[in-house]
Simulated assay, not measured.
Amino acid sequence: MENTNINTDQWLTNNKHYVEQREAGTASGISSSMHTVVITCMDCRIMIESALGLKPGQAFVIRNAGNIVTDDVVRSLTLAVQTAGIQEVMVIGHTDCAVGKLDEPAFKTELQQQYPEGVKHDLTPTCFHAFSDVLENVRKQVQTLKSHPYFKNLSSIRGFVYDIRTGKISDINE
């Protein structure tokens, strides 16, 4: 069997260099010195830590396709709020999002045809949360968080859009 892990092997080599250059003390505990969680898309074009000027330990980052507030995002955020004193949440969508272009019914049909056994699997997604308007999607995710009783006492839950072309992050309320 040929090696199909060429990229993974390169990432592990890169990690060796990272370990050699890493500053001592960057793993001093699970917390967020800025008491902030960023919820954003998993799109690999978004280097959110760089775009916000974050350093290790300053903020938790939760990523998924479409920056959707799913059960798992609520689970992760609840843990961060209860154990790390999180007070602020930034929901950051982005332009040119694949989930914003997704034809969900067609995608589900394609999956069912390609993987008929997947329909019966416990972890098969039933919803991919497709949307057509990035601003409306971010507003919806912010509202979902604001209406959740676990997050009523946070000092700030705000929404933003990252422009893939420029890297600019804009407040959805401006």
Rank of each mutant, 00 (worst) to 15 (best):
1 M>T: 10
1 M>S: 12
4 T>E: 04
7 N>T: 13
8 T>L: 15
8 T>W: 10
8 T>D: 06
9 D>G: 06
9 D>N: 14
9 D>M: 09
10 Q>H: 11
12 L>E: 04
14 N>L: 04
15 N>A: 02
16 K>I: 00
16 K>T: 00
19 V>Y: 00
21 Q>V: 00
22 R>K: 01
26 T>F: 00
28 S>Y: 01
31 S>W: 01
32 S>P: 04
37 V>R: 01
38 V>S: 03
39 I>C: 02
39 I>N: 00
45 R>I: 11
46 I>C: 08
46 I>H: 06
47 M>N: 15
47 M>E: 14
47 M>Q: 14
50 S>W: 08
50 S>Y: 11
51 A>K: 15
52 L>D: 07
52 L>K: 12
55 K>G: 01
56 P>M: 00
57 G>C: 01
58 Q>M: 08
58 Q>V: 04
59 A>L: 01
60 F>W: 02
61 V>E: 01
63 R>W: 05
67 N>I: 03
68 I>G: 04
73 V>T: 04
73 V>A: 02
74 V>N: 02
74 V>S: 02
75 R>I: 01
77 L>C: 03
78 T>K: 11
79 L>K: 00
79 L>H: 03
80 A>W: 02
80 A>C: 11
81 V>S: 06
85 G>M: 09
86 I>D: 04
89 V>W: 09
89 V>R: 07
90 M>L: 15
90 M>P: 07
91 V>I: 15
92 I>N: 13
94 H>D: 10
94 H>E: 09
95 T>E: 12
104 E>P: 13
104 E>T: 13
105 P>H: 06
107 F>E: 06
107 F>I: 02
108 K>W: 05
111 L>D: 06
112 Q>L: 12
113 Q>L: 14
113 Q>K: 15
114 Q>E: 14
114 Q>Y: 11
117 E>C: 03
117 E>K: 09
117 E>N: 07
118 G>W: 12
119 V>H: 03
119 V>K: 09
121 H>E: 05
122 D>S: 07
128 F>L: 13
131 F>L: 10
132 S>D: 14
133 D>Q: 11
137 N>T: 13
138 V>R: 14
138 V>Y: 13
139 R>P: 07
141 Q>G: 11
142 V>G: 10
146 K>Y: 02
146 K>H: 04
147 S>N: 13
148 H>A: 06
148 H>C: 04
149 P>D: 08
149 P>S: 07
153 N>Y: 03
155 S>H: 08
155 S>T: 11
156 S>V: 07
157 I>Q: 02
157 I>S: 01
163 D>H: 14
164 I>F: 08
167 G>F: 11
169 I>Y: 13
170 S>T: 15
173 N>M: 14
174 E>N: 15
